[in-house]
């Protein structure tokens, strides 16, 4: 008797919470396609007034496609840097013995303790004034070019592989690069997907840094141009609420789709093991 009551309670708690969590997304998606997004509870399930005009409205102000492309280049740059250099570093730290390995490991732990906000001003000075990389993709990508958390997780995964395998391959004369690419990486592929997903959302959702270094609207990723739209130009649009929700949907949609596709890789044990170190 008590058990069933407990089970009921569990489902009630979970369902109420899930509705609270999902409702703003429902509101965003419906509102993005409404001529006049609702502000009253009785019209929460609209049956008429559908439109795609909101997307056209926001596109005319912030160049939706251009901004999405900027977001994509920014994110792709970070993913590329993290995969190429991060895998190399993670592999070396986990499986190779070389001078400087200990120092690299300590540096990696220290980096995770430095908050980005402390570095924000000096990085801004360094990258815009020192390197002249304001309003460039490279300037956007540089501070995130190699995701340290990803390097850390890579090294944890490589460390868990059996050492005999590496020794056998070395005796067979395989070079270290060959070992990494054709033996180590295929073995950790599922984990790789999780790390890539986590690395993806970082730059895709990042606002503060690209906001600081892009003054040129044609270089701004969608998060920045949407934020500018919300805080500056929204007043001068006929249906600003609908346009805001349309922009929000365009920014949220790729991540939600990616997550739903790769949801089964995104498990507690994978990330948990990594976080616990």
């Amino acid at each position: 008797m008590r058990r069933t009551r407990l089970t009921w309670l569990r489902y009630v708690v979970l369902t109420v919470a899930a509705l609270v969590f999902a409702f703003p997304f429902y509101f965003m998606l419906i509102g993005a396609f409404q001529e006049n997004p609702t502000n009253t509870p009785d019209s929460i399930f609209p049956t008429s007034g559908w439109t795609t005009g909101n997307f056209a409205a926001i596109d005319s102000r912030i160049d939706l496609v251009g901004s999405l492309l900027n977001s994509l280049v920014f994110t792709a740059g970070v993913l590329l840097g993290t995969v190429v250099f991060g895998l190399l570093a993670g592999y070396a730290i986990a499986r190779l013995n070389f001078r400087g390995r200990g120092v690299t490991w300590v540096l990696m732990l220290l980096v995770q303790m430095v908050p980005f906000q402390l570095l924000m001003i000096p990085l801004y000075v360094q990258i815009t004034r020192g390197y002249g990389l304001g309003d460039t993709y490279l300037g956007m990508i540089l501070p995130f070019a190699i995701n340290t958390t990803a390097v850390f997780i890579f090294s944890q995964f490589f460390r868990a592989l059996p050492k005999e395998m590496f020794e056998a391959a070395r005796i067979d004369g395989a070079g270290e690069l060959r070992l990494l690419v054709s033996i180590a990486v295929p073995l950790v592929r599922p984990a790789l997907v999780t790390v890539l997903l986590v690395t993806f959302i970082g730059p895709w959702n990042e606002f503060l840094w690209p906001f600081l270094i892009t003054k040129d609207a044609t270089m701004q990723p969608l998060a920045v141009s949407l934020a500018n739209y919300i805080s500056n130009v929204a007043q001068s649009t006929a249906n600003p609420n609908g346009a805001i929700l349309a922009g929000a949907t365009a920014l949220a949609f790729p991540v939600v789709v990616l997550f739903c596709l790769f949801q089964r890789y995104f498990t507690a044990s994978d990330l948990g093991a990594a976080v616990k170190g």
């Binding site: 997004p37 959702n205 998060a223 949407l226 939600v256």
Partner: peptide, 14 residues
């Protein structure tokens, strides 16, 4: 997982 800028837009209206 969703960008704060998106969700802030929704909360602002709500």
């Amino acid at each position: 997982l969703t960008a704060s800028v998106s969700l802030v837009g929704v909360w602002m209206l709500l």
